[in-house]
Amino acid sequence: MESARVDDLDRRVIAALLAHPRATHATIGQAVSSSEATVSRRIARLRRQGAVRVVGALDSQLSHRARSVFVRLRCAPGAADELARPLALWHETGSVKVLTGSVDCVAELAYTSNEHLYRLMMHRLPQLEGVTATFSNQVIRRFSTPHGWNPGILPDETVTALRAERRDRWAERPEPDEVVPMSPLDERVLGELIGDGRMSWQDLAGRCGVTPSTARRRAEALMARGFLRMRTVVEPEVLGLTVNAFVWLTINPTKIGLAGEMLARNRNVIMIAATTGDRNLCGEIAVANDSALYDFLSETVGHLPGLIHADVAVALRTVKRAGMVAPDVVPVGGGIS
Rank of each mutant, 00 (worst) to 15 (best):
T24Y: 03
V39R: 03
T112H: 03
Y118R: 12
M122P: 05
I28V: 15
P86H: 04
S63Q: 06
I28N: 01
L17S: 08
A31H: 10
T38Q: 06
E92H: 10
V54A: 07
L46H: 06
R53L: 15
A57G: 03
Q49R: 09
G56P: 01
L17Y: 03
R42K: 11
G78D: 09
V98S: 11
E92N: 12
A76P: 02
L17K: 04
R41G: 03
M121R: 07
L89Y: 09
A37G: 13
A76E: 13
T100P: 08
H64L: 11
M121D: 12
R41K: 14
V98W: 01
H116P: 12
A51V: 06
A4N: 07
H64V: 00
L17P: 00
D104A: 03
M121Q: 14
S40A: 15
E115Y: 01
R67A: 06
H25S: 07
L73A: 14
R42M: 01
L99G: 04
V39F: 03
H116D: 15
D81G: 12
T100C: 14
L87W: 02
S102V: 13
P77K: 07
S68N: 11
D104W: 05
H116R: 02
G56R: 02
D59T: 06
L58F: 08
L62M: 08
S63T: 13
S33F: 07
E115W: 03
Q61F: 03
S33P: 00
L58Y: 14
V55M: 11
V6I: 12
A19D: 03
G101H: 13
C75L: 14
L109Q: 02
L58D: 05
R5Y: 14
I43Y: 02
S34E: 11
R124C: 09
